[in-house]
Amino acid sequence: MNQHANRIDRRFAALKAAGRKALIPYITAGDPAPAHTVDFMHACVEAGADVIELGVPFSDPMADGPVIQKACERALVHGTRLSHVLEMVAAFRERDSETPVVLMGYLNPIERMGYAAFARQARDAGVDGVLAVDMPPEEMGENAALFADHGLQSIFLLAPTTSEQRATTICHHGQGYLYYVSLKGVTGAATLDAEAVGAQLASLRALTELPLCVGFGIRDGATAAAIGRVADGVIVGSALVGRIAERADTPETIPQALREILGEMREALDRDARA
C-alpha cells in the first residue's frame, strides 16, 4: 500500500483522538505568482493548518465568487497549469511529509491531462485527495477506482439543498472528509447561520462516519469557532485569498498575514475544544 494513501484519514484520526477540530485553508496555486505558493503552504502549516486545499486555477471558475475568480486570473497570468501545481506539491513534500494536500478545482484541467496520467503524477507528487467541484460521484465512473488505486481520495461536496437520497450516494462514495457548503451561492458569500448548519450536520451524521468539514462564510476566529462547535473541521478560502490579493504587490508580507489569520482561527478552535 502506498505510504501516502491515508494521510487524510490519519490526520482526522489524530484530531479526533485529541478532541480537536481541523483547520483547512484554501489557497489558489500560483497566486499572486507561482514562486510563492510553496512558502504559503508552509506558512499555513506553521499557523496550525491540518489539511491544505490547494486550488488549481481555472479560466472559468463557475462556482466561485469574485475573490477566487481574481485569484485564478492572477495565477493564470503566469501560466500556472495543473502540471505546475503538481510540481509545487512535490516541492512542498520536500519539507513536509505529513500534512495532507487536497487539490481543489474544476474538472477540465484533469480531463485534458488525462485521468491516468493525472492519477500517476498526483500520486508521485504527494497529493492525497482531489475535489473537483464539477465532478459529482455519479460522473466519476471508473475514475473513482483509478484514483483510489493511486492513493487519491475523492472528496465531495454536500449542500443544504442536497436531498437525502443524494446525500446517501455522496456519503457512500466520499472519502477522507465531506465538504459541507454552508451557504447557497458562490464562494465568498456573506452570512452564516451556525445553528442551521449544526442541525443539517446532525442529520448527515446518521448517514456517514466521515468527518464533516464546513466551508463558505468562515472569515475569522469567531466564525471558525462557531462552526467548529458543530463540525469536524472548518475550511477557509476567500478570507485568505482576499488577504493575498491585498498584498499581491508585496508577496513577502503574505506568509505573515496568513499566519495571523489562521493563527487566530486555530486559537479560537482550540480554545473552544478545551472549554
Binding site: 463557475m62 462556482a63 474538472l107 467541484v133 464539477d134 465532478m135 459529482p136 455519479e138 460522473e139 465531495f156 461536496l157 454536500l158 449542500a159 439543498t161 442536497t162 436531498s163 443524494r166 455522496i170 457548503v181 447557497k184 451561492g185
Partner: peptide
C-alpha cells in the same frame, strides 16, 4: 451533469 453539488437540487 457535471455541476457543483449546490446546483444538483
Amino acid at each position: 451533469r457535471f455541476v457543483s453539488e449546490t446546483l444538483s437540487f
